[in-house]
């Protein structure tokens, strides 16, 4: 089926603290809460995602780093326990997910056609990275929508930032083509923090919010400047400033997800909806949405009844 489309993109950062603060049954460590403004931001994003009724969620994660090319999860069912190597005290999460392998293969093929090195990950024992899992949990804790997981090739770090982000731009365009040609109704998730200056020690009680604040005032000001531009829909200006933002705020968007998502959406000059902003161990995190349906840049807000029915059946199969 052709005529697929991207219905929305979300900036969907992945601090495992948000899962820890929420206390879902999948996560072993238990908290007294914490990071509520960001978690409430995700609640709003969840509601919006629910209304969009996508067939698939595509996530580009900076914690699956690859040196040789851009990789795509290519195993239909993946499960296991994800323990964050940086915050194992906060995130030990039992997951089970379904991959839209057909779309992943199409993305891979389109990326290769555009000159990128691209490959499928076919190993069923592969450990899905915690960035992918955290973003997916926070946006859709039901785990009832198939996903496509995309690695962060290290080109922005190995080459120059600009050369690396050029690759992400190409990857985004390839992703869009694949979505259109496979007929999917897709939501893109850029799993990125903004300013990434962070504390070097953790409080004894990680969720003690009296200890949470921006690590860097300059980084905070950069975040506000970029968010305000995004809220105004000044996308071209955001991308003009992006290399400077990356350098001065040590912004995690360097890893490529943000560029990938905007390239796939065609860099719309569309005001983004800020669901919320907050810091996590000092880093700046914004949950933002670009709803292409509401903007009239994609099809109807509700998926056809058949899609909703398919998803209900899928959720049943997952249980």
């Amino acid at each position: 089926m052709a005529n697929g489309e991207i219905v929305a993109g979300f900036l969907a950062p992945h601090p495992p603290h948000l899962v820890y603060g929420e206390n879902p049954p999948q996560n072993e460590p238990k908290s007294e809460g914490g990071w509520e403004p960001l978690r409430w931001a995700y609640e709003r994003a969840r509601k919006s995602l629910d209304e969009l009724q996508p067939d698939v969620l595509l996530v580009h994660s900076p914690h699956w780093i690859t040196q040789v090319g851009h990789h795509f999860l290519g195993v239909r069912h993946l499960s296991g326990k994800s323990v964050d190597p940086i915050f194992p005290n906060l995130f030990r999460y039992t997951f089970e997910l379904e991959v839209d392998v057909e779309l992943a293969e199409a993305c891979c093929e389109k990326a290769a056609q555009r000159g990128l090195t691209a490959m499928m990950m076919r190993n069923p024992k592969f450990r899905v990275d915690y960035g992918t899992i955290t973003t997916l949990h926070m946006i859709r804790p039901q785990w009832d929508i198939p996903i496509v997981g995309i690695s962060a090739n290290n080109s922005p770090y190995y080459l120059t930032t600009e050369e690396g982000l050029d690759e992400m731009d190409t990857l985004g365009k390839a992703t869009r083509e694949a979505i259109e040609e496979t007929g999917r109704r897709a939501v893109l998730l850029a799993s990125n923090t903004l300013c990434h200056w962070h504390f070097h020690e953790e409080p004894d009680t990680p969720e003690d919010m009296s200890r949470e604040h921006p690590q860097s005032y300059d980084g905070y000001k950069w975040d506000m400047r970029m968010i305000e531009l995004l809220r105004q829909g000044k996308t071209a200006e955001v991308f003009r400033l992006l290399p400077q933002f990356i350098d001065e705020a040590f912004a995690e968007v360097k890893s490529g997800a943000f560029t990938w998502m905007f390239a796939a959406m065609g860099y719309p000059e569309l005001p983004g909806e800020l669901h919320g902003y907050g810091t996590v161990i000092g880093t700046g995190n914004a949950v933002m949405e670009w709803n292409l349906v509401k903007a009239g840049l994609a099809g109807a807000a509700a998926a056809p009844p058949s899609a909703a029915g398919d998803r209900a059946a899928y959720a049943g199969a997952m249980r």
């Binding site: 040789v68 940086i86 024992k125 450990r127 990275d129 504390f199 070097h200 953790e202």
Partner: peptide, 20 residues
Amino acid sequence: VLDALWQARPRLTGAHVDEN
């Protein structure tokens, strides 16, 4: 990125698949 970490689990077993 936080602290110097040291492994303290007495035994570690499993199978690992490299990211690359």
